[in-house]
Measured scan of single mutants.
Amino acid sequence: EAKQAFKELLKEKRVPSNASWEQAMKMIINDPRYSALAKLSEKKQAFNAY
Rank of each mutant, 00 (worst) to 15 (best):
L10E: 01
K26A: 11
R14L: 11
L10R: 02
S41F: 00
Q23L: 08
P16R: 03
S41D: 12
A46P: 06
K13T: 07
S35D: 14
L40H: 11
A36G: 13
A5C: 04
K43T: 07
E12H: 08
S41A: 11
K43N: 09
Y50F: 01
I28T: 09
K7T: 15
E42H: 10
S35H: 13
L9F: 03
F6E: 06
N18A: 07
E42D: 15
I28M: 02
I29A: 15
K39R: 12
R14F: 00
E8T: 08
A49P: 01
E1G: 08
F6R: 03
M25K: 14
K7D: 09
S41H: 04
P32T: 07
L40D: 15
E8W: 00
A2D: 05
A5V: 13
A5T: 13
A2N: 14
I28Q: 02
K3T: 11
S41R: 07
N18D: 14
K11V: 15
A24I: 02
A19L: 05
A36C: 14
M27D: 04
N30G: 15
A49L: 07
Q23S: 11
P32V: 07
L40Q: 13
S41K: 06
S20L: 03
K39G: 14
K11H: 14
K13R: 10
Q4R: 13
A36K: 11
L40S: 10
M27L: 13
A19I: 09
M27N: 08
E8H: 05
M27T: 09
E42T: 05
Q4H: 07
A2Q: 03
K43A: 09
F47N: 03
F6G: 04
I29C: 15
S20G: 08
A2C: 01
N48F: 03
L37S: 05
A46L: 14
R14Y: 00
D31R: 02
M25R: 15
E12V: 03
P32W: 02
A5F: 04
S35G: 13
P32F: 03
A19Q: 05
P16K: 04
P16T: 04
S20D: 11
K26D: 14
A38Q: 12
K39L: 12
P16W: 00
E22T: 12
K39W: 04
A19W: 04
K7I: 15
P32E: 09
E22M: 10
W21P: 08
E8G: 05
K44T: 05
F6W: 01
E12M: 00
W21L: 03
I28A: 05
K43Y: 06
K43D: 03
Y50N: 09
A38L: 09
K13S: 09
D31V: 00
W21S: 05
A36E: 10
E22R: 06
A46C: 12
Q45T: 07
E42N: 02
A24W: 00
K44R: 09
K3W: 10
K43E: 07
N48C: 02
N48K: 13
L40W: 07
F6V: 03
A49I: 12
S20V: 05
A36V: 11
S17A: 15
L10P: 02
I28V: 12
E12F: 00
I28D: 08
L37T: 04
K26R: 13
Q23W: 04
E8F: 03
L37I: 07
W21R: 07
F47M: 03
K43C: 02
L37H: 06
E42Q: 07
M27I: 08
A19G: 06
K43W: 07
N18W: 09
L37N: 03
N18E: 10
A49C: 11
I29G: 15
Y50Q: 06
K44V: 13
A2S: 06
L9R: 00
A19V: 11
Y50C: 06
Q4C: 00
K13H: 02
S17W: 13
A49R: 08
Q45N: 09
D31Q: 02
A2P: 03
K13F: 07
K26F: 02
Q4V: 11
Q23F: 04
E1S: 02
K13M: 08
A38C: 10
K39F: 06
R14M: 13
N30Q: 13
P32S: 12
Q4S: 12
P32D: 10
E1R: 06
F6Y: 02
K11D: 12
N18F: 06
P32M: 01
K39D: 14
I29M: 15
K26G: 14
A46D: 04
A24E: 05
E22H: 10
N48L: 09
V15H: 01
N48G: 07
P16L: 01
K11C: 09
I28E: 05
A24P: 03
M27R: 05
K7C: 12
L37K: 03
K44S: 03
L9V: 05
N48P: 06
L10N: 06
W21K: 08
Q23V: 12
K44W: 03
E42F: 06
L10F: 01
Q45A: 12
A46Q: 09
K26L: 08
W21E: 07
S17V: 15
A36R: 11
Y50M: 10
A49V: 08
M27E: 09
N18Q: 10
A19C: 13
V15D: 02
